[in-house]
Nucleic acid binder design. Structure first.
Lengths: 165, 165
DNA sequence: ACTGAAAACAATTGCGA
DNA sequence: TCGCAATTGTTTTCAGT
């Protein structure tokens, strides 16, 4: 009763497991099981479910931008000329197909998009922005912030007790 | 000659492997080997080296913020009162120890830091900002941008031919 | 530095509770 | 949903090229 068709739910043990694999997803289920007080099998079943339910969205390796010759990292606030759905959607597609953009956010507030861009050098970056931003008539303004330092390693979010939401 | 003691280098096959595991690090070495034209064993040795050399920094699961009850995501530009090393370092530590902050960047430009914050609700977020920002005398200004949409899934960076850098 | 086979290890599946 | 045991699959090691 009261179930609204939602199957993707998780309990406190799942939460603990996610905290672990958010830091390191190469931990063996044995180790995970040890830490959460469950058998390896149970942990694996839980992980499998979390993945197929989309609670765990992806499993990825993080590559060091510096180590692969991209020491320049920029955060770029982009404002479009007009906030029209079709223009926004077009810009989203352009973001997706641009390798230089590691990630992008569609936002509300001072700007419309925030982009995280890596480049091999300042010249590269400038050349890229000319191509990508300047030649784009839908873009009103661009504000670049140079990343000096990434303060937190990963991208972990806190996972607290699930609620019936 | 000209070698400054750097051993961490990678070749084009490594680059191809990294492209793959940046998307999905649970691919078996067998599959990776197939795609790059190498035996599974060779791929695994390469991955091991890439990891121990720090070219691959980490291997993590990406958890859906929405699915774990944190539908509110914010990007926050923070400007400190004064750009003094000790104040900056102190703020970095505060970022590190705050679970709500998924990641943070120390930047130059319009602000000093950009933070990515998740929250269970708007009230939660407001309460958090009061505690974290308002009560902090070193903070001059805070500008919040609401994340409507994340445009790109992961955090992949392009990996092109390595150079002697 | 690669391949391929064997050994070691981890994940998955089936079953009884 | 769990744990255990058996199976399947993956990674690691080792010898050979």
């Amino acid at each position: 009763m009261g179930n609204r068709g939602r199957t993707n739910d998780y309990d406190q043990i799942d939460a603990r497991i996610m905290e672990l694999v958010q830091e390191n997803n190469r931990l063996t289920s044995d180790v995970i099981g040890e830490r959460v007080g469950l058998s390896a099998t149970a942990c694996q079943r839980r992980l499998k479910r979390l993945r197929s339910d989309g609670i765990i969205e992806a499993d990825v390796s993080i590559v060091s931008a510096k180590a692969v010759g991209r020491p320049i990292q920029m955060l770029v606030l982009v404002t479009l000329e007009r906030e029209r759905i079709d223009i926004i959607d077009k810009f989203k597609k352009e973001i997706k197909s641009s390798a230089e953009i590691a990630t992008g956010f569609y936002i509300t507030g001072d700007a419309d998009f925030l982009l995280y861009i890596t480049a091999r050098s300042m010249e590269d970056y400038e050349q890229y922005t000319r191509r990508f931003f300047y030649d784009n008539p839908n873009i009103k303004s661009v504000k670049t912030m140079v990343v000096v330092d990434r303060v937190k390693a990963g991208f972990s979010i806190p996972i607290d007790l699930p609620e019936d939401d």
